[in-house]
C-alpha cells in the first residue's frame, strides 16, 4: 500500500498549503457576500417573476458547482482506478460529500423558487429531476462507504460506483428530458438579460472558491484520519513482519 503516512510526514509543505487554502476560503466568503449584496441591490426585477429572479443568484451557482463536484468525484475515481493511490479515493469522497450538500441545496432552493413562480413545490422538470437523481447517487455513494470497513475495498468499490454514476448522469438527463418535453414544450433556448449575468457569474465564482476550500479541508481531514488508522494498524501488527492489511 503506497502509504499516506509518508505523505503526511512531509508536514511543512502541507502547512503552507493549508494557509493557501484558507486564503481561498476567506476570499470565497468575502466574494460571496459582496456578490450577493451587489446582485440583490443592483439587478432590476424580472418582467415575469419580479424580484424572485434573485433566487437565481444562489440556486444556479449551487447547481453549477454540484455538477463540478460530481465531475471531480468521477475524475478522482478514475485516477484511483488508474494509479491505485488511496489519497485519490479520499479526494473523491470529500468531493462527494460537498457535492451531496450542493445538490441538496439546489433542490431546496429550486423548491423555494418553484412555489411562488410555478405555484408548486415540485415538478417533474428534466433538470429538477436529474438533479434529484444526482442527489440520490451521491447519497448511495456515501452510504456505500459507511457500509464497507476495509479501506482498500471501500476505495475500489466507491471508485467504480462513482464512475458508473457519472456515466449515468447524461443518460438520465436525456431520458428525463424526452419524457417531459414530450408532454411539456420547452420553448426558446435560455436567454438572460445582461444585467443578470454579472452578479450570477460573481456568485458562481464565489461559491466555487468556497467549494474548493471545503473539499480541500475535508480531504486533509480524511488524510489525517487515514494516517492515524494506519499508525494504529502498524501498532496492532507490530512484530509481525510484512504485516499489512490483506
Amino acid at each position: 500500500m503506497e502509504s499516506v503516512v509518508n505523505r503526511a510526514a512531509t508536514a511543512a509543505p502541507m502547512a503552507s498549503r493549508e494557509v493557501r487554502w484558507t486564503t481561498v476560503g476567506v476570499a470565497g466568503l468575502v466574494l460571496l457576500v459582496a456578490a450577493q449584496v451587489y446582485g440583490v441591490l443592483t439587478s432590476p426585477p424580472d418582467r415575469d417573476m419580479g424580484h424572485l429572479q434573485k433566487i437565481m443568484y444562489v440556486h444556479v451557482p449551487a447547481a453549477w458547482n454540484a455538477m463540478l463536484a460530481f465531475l471531480l468525484v468521477a475524475l478522482a475515481s478514475l485516477r484511483y482506478l488508474w494509479k491505485g493511490r488511496l489519497a485519490d479515493d479520499l479526494l473523491a469522497a470529500s468531493a462527494a460529500e460537498v457535492g451531496m450538500l450542493l445538490t441538496g441545496l439546489t433542490l431546496a432552493l429550486g423548491m423555494i423558487w418553484g412555489k411562488p413562480t410555478w405555484g408548486i413545490w415540485w415538478t417533474w422538470e428534466p433538470r429538477l429531476t436529474s438533479t434529484a437523481v444526482l442527489f440520490f447517487m451521491f447519497v448511495a455513494y456515501l452510504i456505500l462507504r459507511t457500509f464497507v470497513d476495509d479501506a482498500e475495498r471501500r476505495a475500489q468499490w466507491s471508485a467504480v460506483v462513482g464512475l458508473l454514476g457519472a456515466l449515468n448522469v447524461p443518460i438520465v438527463y436525456m431520458s428525463v428530458r424526452w419524457w417531459r418535453t414530450l408532454h411539456q414544450m420547452q420553448s426558446s433556448p435560455m436567454t438572460l438579460d445582461s444585467s443578470y449575468t454579472w452578479p450570477l457569474r460573481a456568485n458562481a465564482v464565489a461559491l466555487m472558491l468556497l467549494m474548493a476550500y471545503a473539499v480541500a479541508h475535508r480531504y486533509r481531514s480524511a488524510l489525517m484520519t487515514q494516517t492515524a488508522d494506519e499508525l494504529m494498524d502498524r501498532l496492532a501488527l507490530k512484530g509481525t513482519p510484512g504485516g499489512s492489511r490483506a
Binding site: H51, V58, H59, A108, G110, I112, G119, S130, M190
Partner: peptide, 30 residues
Amino acid sequence: SWIAWPSRVPPEVPVPEYNNAFIIAAFAVT
C-alpha cells in the same frame, strides 16, 4: 442546459408582486 433552474414560468400561476418571504428564505437556506 445542465443547470437546474426553473426556466419556465407556467402560466397557470399568476406571479405575485411580493415574494420577499421566499427570497429571504432562499438566501437564509444558502
